[in-house]
Amino acid sequence: MIRTFGIILTLIGVAFLFFSLFLEYETPLELSGSASYYAASTAEDTGSANLVSAIVVTYRGLDTLGEVTILFLTSSIMSYMLKTKKARNQRTFRESSELLRTASALLVPFIILLGVFIFVHGHLSPGGGFQGGAVLASALVLLLVADPLYTVQSRILSVIESSSGFLYVLLGLSGLLFGAGFLDSRVLPTGRVGELFSAGLIPLIYILIGLKVGTELSNLLSVFHSVQGQDLMEDEGGAR
């Protein structure tokens, strides 16, 4: 009781803090310092039509590399954290409906196509590597829903994941070696704004990100999927 009361009081304090911030908020009328630079120069600098993509891949490319790393960390940690015991129980599931199975077989190629489209056009239209990758992974969701016993080729996924990550770093490095800095996307010609083959490395990097995110999310899904109803690996002698 006292506890709840304390929590309420504290949250009132938090609300007061938020309210103070909220009072200070007003939608700006002009773009601020860096934003106006991005708006004015991105197209010329990078050749990317989508300003957000240019920021994500080039200007703040290091953040993006970092966030890719976080996904990588998550899937790596889960791969050894949620290892299951060798002897798998035989799992029984209710058969999926025929409708679902047929539809999924039909839809999956299109979903993958859509995902690829989204990350290939990341520098031109809304979307990009993350969005495309997420769409790719959703294909796997559909497959798993349709066939719970579907075994994911996690080895292939992780090879794609690792090599696209490695290539991403190499592309970044090429910016350092041939361009003006790490992750400089202007190593390849920036081309004309709005064309598919433009914006230097941005589409290439987005393709790698798309592949990486797609495989990582698929990996996460398959790990969670595979531990359902299974016993997790016990302590392996870790004393503490």
Partner: peptide, 23 residues
């Protein structure tokens, strides 16, 4: 491209939120 500064919203928070969502 030349009109962009007066017509578009701030692109930076969108880039940031993308990162934050993934994290």
């Amino acid at each position: 491209a030349s009109d962009a500064p007066s017509l578009v919203v701030d692109p930076l928070p969108q880039a940031l939120v993308l990162t934050a969502i993934v994290i």
